[in-house]
Simulated assay, not measured.
Amino acid sequence: MAAIGNSNLDIFPLALGGNTFGWTSDETSSFEILDAFTAGGGNFIDTADSYSAFADGNSGGESETIIGNWTSARGNRDDVVIATKVSQHPEFKGLAPNNIAAAAEASLKRLQSDHIDVYYAHYDDDKTPLVESLAAFDQLVKDGKVRYVAISNYSADRIREWLSLSEENGFAKPIALQPHYNLVTRADYEAELAPVATDNNLGVFPYFALAAGFLTGKYRTREDLEGQARKRLATGYFTDKGLDVVTALSDIADAHDAEISTVALAWLLEQPSVTAPIASASKIAQLPALLAAPGLKLSADELTRLTDVSGRI
Rank of each mutant, 00 (worst) to 15 (best):
T47F: 05
T47N: 03
A48E: 04
D49P: 06
S50A: 13
Y51A: 03
A55K: 07
A55P: 01
G57V: 03
N58L: 08
G61I: 00
S63E: 07
S63Y: 08
T65V: 08
I66Y: 12
I66K: 11
I67R: 00
W70Y: 04
S72R: 13
S72E: 14
R74Q: 11
V81R: 00
A83V: 02
K85E: 08
E91V: 08
F92N: 01
F92L: 10
F92M: 06
P97C: 05
P97V: 00
I100Q: 02
A101R: 11
A101V: 13
E105F: 08
S107Q: 06
S107V: 11
S107K: 03
S107C: 12
L108V: 14
L108E: 04
K109Q: 14
K109P: 08
R110S: 11
L111K: 00
I116L: 15
D117R: 05
Y119W: 13
Y119C: 10
A121G: 14
Y123V: 14
D124I: 13
D126E: 09
K127Y: 11
T128I: 06
T128E: 04
P129E: 09
P129I: 06
P129Q: 07
L130Y: 01
L130N: 02
L130K: 05
E132V: 00
A136V: 00
A136H: 03
D138I: 00
D138Y: 01
Q139T: 14
V141K: 01
K142N: 13
K142C: 09
D143S: 13
D143A: 15
G144P: 04
K145H: 14
K145N: 13
Y148T: 02
A150V: 03
S152P: 01
Y154Q: 12
Y154I: 03
A156L: 08
